[in-house]
Design a binder for these strands. Structure first.
Length: 288
DNA sequence: AGCCAGGTCTGCG
DNA sequence: CGCAGACATGGC
């Protein structure tokens, strides 16, 4: 049990960062947050400029929360117009966490065509079914399952996790990582576009998932994931949709992605997160 | 009941 | 290449 004090010029909003849809294993219990990070239970609480912690070391927590990054400077770089300015203002202290690439890979395969609460549910049941029980502290805590653990079961067993059609993608991707454990490490060393190509070769990983994996798992801050919400925001505020566009096309998403990366620059991923977290305000939609 | 969700895959021209 | 449909599941 310890605490770190946030420097005034390096703000951080713990609750916002843990709950905004980039991490799926955090639960709020009173004013504490509890979650499993790389096989250990962490408990965190923010009181003003203090973050109290149980589980990690101070250095490990600082790295997870990316407190070394100059958030105000990043905000200043992407703060190019009133729309993104409003988004930045709406989510002060939002930080992109440094999470485990393997867990992020599987998480964003689960994230296709569903809601954030159900992604949490799927990740939770995968961990309960195939993770290892954590002995201390007491409680029903499970590590995120290893590639071997997810590659081993036959699909009937995976069925218990209610993954829908994603089960075969999870299984296939896990099998590939299990047989080549060094692959994720090599991806980390590749240039952005080559890393993206490799990710796209995994079953269940398309353009959007690949960009989320690059951003949240590999800390590639130029990645600009385009999902339904970002598409709506960009069409409404930045890029008029093509005449006669009915159903969203991959071609159009590619155009949005290229625009976002060029317009917001090397921190485009942060801009995307500000827009995503402020989506309710930017779309005048109260339904989340 | 019908539509939608932090999309991807397949099959066709 | 680009487009249309299919696809599991659950919430509203």
């Amino acid at each position: 049990m310890g605490f770190i004090r946030l420097r005034k010029d390096l703000p951080c909003d713990l609750a916002l960062s843990l709950s905004c849809g980039q991490a799926f294993r955090w639960e709020q219990r009173g004013d504490w947050w509890a979650g499993v990070v790389e096989g250990e239970v962490w408990r965190l609480r923010q009181v003003g400029d203090r973050i109290e912690y149980q589980g990690p070391t101070a250095a490990r927590l600082r790295d997870y929360m990316a407190l070394d990054l100059d958030l105000p400077a990043i905000q200043a770089v992407v703060d190019r117009d009133p729309v993104i300015h409003a988004a930045i203002t709406a989510c002060p202290g939002l930080r992109i966490l440094r999470q485990d690439p393997w867990e992020i890979l599987i998480s964003f395969i689960c994230a296709t065509n569903t809601h954030i609460p159900r992604i949490r549910q799927m990740i939770g049941s995968l961990s309960r079914c195939f993770g290892e029980r954590i002995s201390s502290p007491p409680g029903a805590w499970y590590s995120f399952p290893s590639p071997e653990a997810l590659a081993a079961p036959c699909r009937e067993t995976l069925d218990e996790c209610r993954l829908g059609y994603r089960d075969r993608y999870i299984h296939g991707t896990a099998a590939r990582i299990a047989e080549d454990p060094g692959l994720l490490g090599r991806i980390a060393a590749l240039p952005h576009d080559e890393a993206r190509e490799v990710l796209l070769s995994f079953p269940g990983v398309g353009p959007k998932a690949a960009d989320c994996i690059l951003l949240f798992g590999f800390h590639r801050y130029e990645a600009f994931p385009v999902d339904v919400w970002i598409r709506r925001i960009m069409h409404r505020h930045y890029l008029a949709p093509p005449q006669g566009m009915k159903t969203p096309s991959e071609k159009e998403d590619r155009r949005i992605r290229a625009f976002g990366r060029d317009y917001f620059g090397e921190w485009a991923g942060y801009a995307q997160e500000f827009l995503f977290c402020a989506r309710g305000d930017l779309l005048g939609d109260r339904t989340r």
